[in-house]
């Protein structure tokens, strides 16, 4: 059979994916059942909850906060989160005068073990290109208005370094316990496109 790139592109991706999965299964390279488990884990278990636990610990434990900012990978590993793609995580702190936001301009590098799978906008070419050039405008469009005197730093993730933003603890939540703070922390806040709101 002769094929051309043009006609190949017209095959629906669902069909193409199914064909590839069949071939890989027949060759013993993948086990569809094990793969189901892996997908579920990424979709539901890893999620941003791990990252939220890291942030809540840092808010309530100054010693942990210090370790986290010094060596993100080791401090996150202390809580039992690590592994795939998460070898070098650098944590940057948002303050009243300094704001950090994360992007991967090349593709979609992302700290999976703490934040789960990247959201669709993170992978979007418009976000990847524009947040570097005009971060204040992009953040504003996403609902985060920053005062003009707040310095914005854009961090570009790579295969070597993944960034995690330690958001500011919302005012009025100082009396909350670590467990009570966890559900307040959102993925968007840990990418730096939102602030954490008080309950």
């Amino acid at each position: 059979m002769t094929t051309t790139a043009g006609s190949a592109e017209r095959l629906p991706p669902a069909l193409r994916t199914e064909a590839l999965e069949q071939l890989l299964t027949e060759r013993g390279l993948i086990d569809p059942k094990a793969m189901n488990g892996l997908i579920t884990t990424y979709e539901t278990n890893i999620g941003p909850l791990n990252g939220a636990k890291v942030v809540a610990r840092a808010w309530t434990d100054p010693e942990y906060r210090r370790r986290l900012l010094e060596d993100g990978t080791a401090a996150i590993d202390e809580l039992g989160f690590g592994g795939f793609q998460g070898e070098h995580i650098v944590v940057v702190e948002n303050t009243a005068t300094s704001h950090n936001v994360v992007v991967c301009t090349l593709c979609s590098c992302y700290p999976w073990p703490v934040l789960g799978l990247p959201p669709s906008w993170y992978k979007d070419p418009a976000y990847r290109a524009r947040v570097v050039k005009e971060p204040r405008a992009v953040l504003s469009e996403m609902g985060l208005e920053l005062a003009d005197d707040v310095r914005i730093t854009v961090h570009d993730s790579t295969s070597e370094v993944r960034w995690l933003v330690l958001p500011e603890q919302p005012p009025g939540t100082e009396h909350l316990t670590e467990e009570e703070l966890v559900p307040l922390v959102t993925r968007d806040a840990m990418v730096g496109v939102a602030k954490v709101a008080a309950p």
Partner: peptide, 16 residues
């Protein structure tokens, strides 16, 4: 593509 992202939600429900 940016607009689909609504206001911040708790971690267990913000996995769009």
């Amino acid at each position: 593509p940016l607009d689909i992202e609504g206001p911040a939600a708790p971690p267990r429900s913000n996995g769009e």
